[in-house]
Design a protein around this nucleic acid. Structure first.
Length: 483
RNA sequence: CGGGGAGUGGCGCAGCUUGGUAGCGCGCCUGCUUUGGGAGCAGGAGGUCGCCGGUUCGAAUCCGGUCUCCCCGACCA
């Protein structure tokens, strides 16, 4: 036990090397967690990102959870090219208008200037739809449900690791349907069965859902559905969107099918995506002053067995415990770096967010016990050696629920209702604000924008999704500051 | 585009006003002692002080230019 360091009288200083407390400077805390949990580094080109093994392992688990649900919804994976003819982007007026400022354009290749510049995809609507036009001929070809895992590039002027980077990884789904109703139903199915389900049940982040205002809508979409999460500082993060594209792209790219009567019809389409931004959401929604807190389903390592000292049979006991935990189906790591101090190792695993830790040392072992520590509340309990595996399983199950419950409580506590739009901006300083859309309107939305507050989504008074025929005056706007 | 700030070892910074060829914390390497909550001691490695030019016997420091980054505003979404 180290004696407390001499500190000058006055305000308590954080321990040497501690993270900046969230309340003191949330953005700085975020940067420090990303760096010290070894999630990512900045790339050599401004705005680019190196995803480190710990961060990438989290992404792989998110990817697996999403991919399984996407396939369960009937979509198939495919891959389309990184390079898109610049002319494709220009075909859909709103689309190109939305993206042109952030396009990376390749003007040279093979040592000479290209006749037609090539853009690096900011999204693949245009390329994919040009092929949909070839593949869709008959109503029997519909629905056509395609997903791709890819990188995209949007030149960002204010990059932040995971949240807004020039290049990021994502999944983009693109579908074509025979009817508007079918397209809408599918966009909503993806929103609920894939996105909300993954975010809430796997990532443990409760989300607010609704549709975007015209101002916030995806360029080229007729309706954009969104999942908005609340971060630890009360700001909103758009975590995933599912778009109804109407027939906008179908008309431009000529995606037509012969219906049962042999009459040519334009297809109705959707597109939907989530990205590595979700890792940023995980950090900001669950993290605390000790670092990251990972839901067990996404943790690369669920439980670390920490050998306190290599004495008194502790190593053998630790090794055996690792075997038992693996046999019980857990992802386990043994930390036997006994030349590094106990405190350092504990702190490091807490920074990385590993949900459970078992400390195996000679002192406990002499009494036939080990210490089980749960990350989410940093609680410790002594359990008999033989009961450690069961205790860990229980701790992991409790962690998943606890993280969700905590986030849901924060969301509820920091969401307020106002009736007067003039109160919205001030109320949004601390979280989400629900204000009647009829009272706010597009003018109110513009006024809020001047104060860095945006309408995150529109929903019904009871918080559910609006039907196609829900009157505008029945809608509620959820407004917040956002990342 | 306007205003403000900053470029010094992997990271964070001091030194600059009053020129004398670089220092601190963390991290890193080696050894010993430690190890139940960010270990201690000793010894080391690592920097053409963003870049170009000028003044000077001598420039991180003074002067001119230039590049980059950050913050605020504007613009855009």
């Amino acid at each position: 036990m180290a004696p407390p360091r001499e500190e000058p009288a006055g305000a308590p200083r954080p321990a040497k090397g501690a993270l900046t407390p969230r309340q003191q400077d949330f953005p700085r805390w975020y940067q420090e967690v990303v760096a010290r949990a070894e999630l990512a580094d900045n790339g050599p080109v401004r705005g680019t990102m190196v995803i480190r093994p710990w961060g990438f392992a989290i992404w792989e688990r998110l990817q697996a959870a999403l991919d399984g649900r996407i396939k369960a919804a009937g979509a198939e994976n495919a891959y389309f090219p990184l390079f898109i003819p610049e002319s494709f982007l220009r075909l859909e007026a709103e689309h190109v208008e939305g993206f042109s400022p952030e396009l990376a354009v390749v003007t040279h290749g093979g040592g000479k200037q290209l006749e037609e510049p090539v853009v690096v995809r900011p999204t693949s609507e245009t390329v994919i739809n040009s092929y949909f036009a070839k593949w869709v001929q008959s109503h029997r070809d519909l629905p056509l449900l395609i997903n791709q895992w890819a990188n995209v590039v949007r030149w960002e002027l204010r990059p932040r690791l995971f949240l807004r980077t020039t290049e990021f990884l994502w999944q983009e789904g693109h579908t074509a349907h025979a009817t508007e109703a079918d397209a809408r139903a599918y966009a909503l199915r993806i929103l609920r069965d894939v996105y909300v389900d993954t975010m809430e049940r796997v990532a443990g982040i409760p989300v607010v859902t609704g549709h975007k205002t015209a101002r916030e809508r995806f360029a080229g979409a007729t309706r954009t559905w969104t999942c908005e999460g609340m971060m630890g500082d009360g700001k909103a993060l758009q975590m995933g969107t599912s778009h109804e594209l109407g027939q906008n792209f179908a008309r431009v790219f000529g995606i037509q099918y012969a219906d049962e009567q042999g009459v040519l019809q334009y297809a109705w389409q959707t597109s939907w995506g989530v990205s590595t931004r979700l890792i940023g959401a995980l950090v900001m929604a669950h993290g605390d002053d000790a670092g990251l807190r990972l839901p067990p389903d996404l943790a690369p390592v669920e439980v670390v067995v920490l050998l306190v000292r290599d004495e008194g049979g502790a190593r053998a006991a630790a090794t055996q415990l690792v075997d038992e935990l693996v046999a019980a189906g857990h992802r386990v790591r043994l930390d036997d770096r006994v030349d590094t101090s106990f405190g350092r190792r504990s702190v490091d695993w807490e920074l990385k967010g590993v949900p459970a830790r078992v400390e195996v040392g000679p002192r406990d072992l002499a009494e036939g016990i080990v210490t089980v520590v749960t990350r989410h509340d940093r609680s410790k309990s002594s359990v008999p050696v033989g009961g450690a595996t069961v205790a860990v399983s229980e701790a992991l199950a409790a962690t998943g629920a606890a993280l969700y419950d905590e986030a849901a409580a924060t969301l509820a506590r920091r969401t307020t209702d106002v009736v007067d739009p003039s109160q919205a901006a001030e109320a949004a300083a601390g979280g989400f604000v629900r204000v009647p859309w009829a009272a706010l309107g597009t003018d109110g939305e513009a006024a809020l924008a001047a104060q860095a507050v945006s309408v995150r989504c529109l929903q019904t008074a009871d918080g559910s999704l609006a039907d196609a025929d829900t009157p505008e005056e029945d809608l509620v706007a959820v407004v917040a500051r956002a990342y």
